[in-house]
Amino acid sequence: MSERAIIEVARGAGGGAPVASLRGARSRTAKEAAIGGLLFAAGAVSILTTVGIIAVLVWESLAFFRRVSVAEFLTGTVWTPLFVPQHFGVLPLLMGSVLVSIIAAGIAIPLGLGSAIYLSEFAPERLRRFLKPVLEILAGVPSVVYGYFALTFVTPLLQPLVPGLQLFNALSAGIVVGIMVLPLIASLSEDAMNAVPRGLRQGAYALGATKFEVATRVVTPAALSGIVASFILAISRAIGETMAVVLAAGMTPNLTLDVRESIQTLTAYIVQVSLGDTPFGSIEYQSIFAVGLLLFAVTLGMNVFGRWFLKRYREEYA
């Protein structure tokens, strides 16, 4: 390379002064290394975030567990932290989250899987181009809007059909959370189905299978790891869902399986405490970190499991 070209290249770098000869190479290397370091620092922010989340949750939870035993927290059936006598049994909250997630899964799994099969196997291209963005918009509607929808539309709609349905209830909350996570299942499962090679389908057709048989007995089993992973990730999302549940399911810690009643989820409790004027350092303040730690552990566990499952059971089609 001519010296002139090097000068051109060095000028092109902008920023620093033009380097007139190869003597500049060292400073250029130094600059390159500094930039590499800066870029790495940006990547390291994500590690800091994780460390920060865990440190904050564990630190404040430790303070909480000095006042309430872990056993009482995890096995107690009464949760009354905001009035005396205080009880810190998290099971009612956990049950609330599980109940909402079960309802949501009952809605989102059949509808999401049906949508995925339709989009991947049956939909004509033009219809697909319309349906995909609609599902994307459905996924993009903010949680608080779904909460409003559950409270002002779904519950009044269900009240004549479900006798004894309270204004705040687990059922409406579960239904809208199901609608919220439906697009996640639909798009992840569809991706998994699209990854099934054409040859498998064509082989089945050649053996005389109908479209239905190809979809249910070839494509779905071949994409099963992706489909199951999408279920797990969706349920994890449902457990972490907050505003829809806060607005629609109420704030009543309630160890029940009755979906007509008002309940409180882990997430809704954290919001409830933040709404009040809870002084830093009080046991109520510390309790949100213990609940947050439980929520974080459950959702992280499910996400890690979901992705492990995806990797472990993926059929490789080279």
Binding site: S46, T49, T50, G52, I53, V56, L57, E60, L233, S236, R237, I239, G240, E241, T242, T267, I270, V271, S274, I288, F289, G292, L295, F296, T299, L300, N303, V304, R307
Partner: peptide, 18 residues
């Protein structure tokens, strides 16, 4: 990838403390 799956309210707890 894991952070993308952390519930938003957990970020709220982090923000409150930090």
């Amino acid at each position: 990838a894991n952070l993308a799956g952390v519930p938003s309210i957990v970020y709220g707890i982090l923000g409150l403390a930090v």
